[in-house]
Simulated scan of single mutants.
Amino acid sequence: MHVSRTPRPISAAPPDWVDGAAWVEEITTIDGSSRFQVDSVRFAPGARTVWHRHPLGQVLHVTEGVGLVQCRGEGKHTIRAGDTVRIAPGEWHWHGAAPTSFMTHLAFQEAAADGTEAERGARVTETEDSAGPLTP
């Protein structure tokens, strides 16, 4: 067992992965035989990821604020503190903060056997963002 009490660095999310401001704190990282990763991600109001997918899926658990999540071909969903979202393996999606609220979530994902963690796609267009119903 390993207990870590050292502060973890918080870094700005890479601009090629996020539109707007977001910060990432690595809770666990892929290490040795473990392919499991957990990040705490804080999005500024209106910030969101680009379209992306994870080979083995992703679970998001909102810890603070109000956000949005959308899978390709579906409407957007509002997510709030306490909500958990399961995204299927290989499903294109984006997530981020609502326009007027910060949002923080824990992101859980596992890398594929070949080391692939995620595939980055295109930026979310305003047309895509405004398309489809907003599900409460």
Rank of each mutant, 00 (worst) to 15 (best):
V62S: 00
V62Y: 06
T63S: 03
T63W: 04
T63H: 00
T63M: 05
T63P: 04
E64Y: 15
E64H: 15
G65L: 00
V66A: 11
G67W: 07
V69N: 02
V69M: 04
V69W: 00
V69A: 09
C71A: 14
C71F: 03
R72F: 11
G73Q: 09
G75E: 07
K76V: 06
K76F: 03
H77K: 13
T78V: 15
R80E: 13
R80A: 13
G82E: 03
G82L: 01
D83A: 01
V85C: 01
R86N: 15
R86V: 15
I87E: 07
A88G: 12
A88R: 10
P89K: 02
W92Q: 03
W92H: 07
W94A: 01
G96Y: 04
G96L: 04
A97Y: 00
A97R: 02
A98I: 03
S101Q: 06
F102Y: 12
M103W: 06
M103C: 15
M103G: 09
M103P: 06
T104F: 07
T104C: 04
H105R: 04
H105D: 03
L106C: 10
L106F: 09
L106A: 11
A107V: 12
F108H: 12
Q109M: 14
Q109A: 15
E110I: 13
E110R: 14
E110V: 15
A111K: 14
D114N: 14
A118G: 08
E119I: 12
R120E: 10
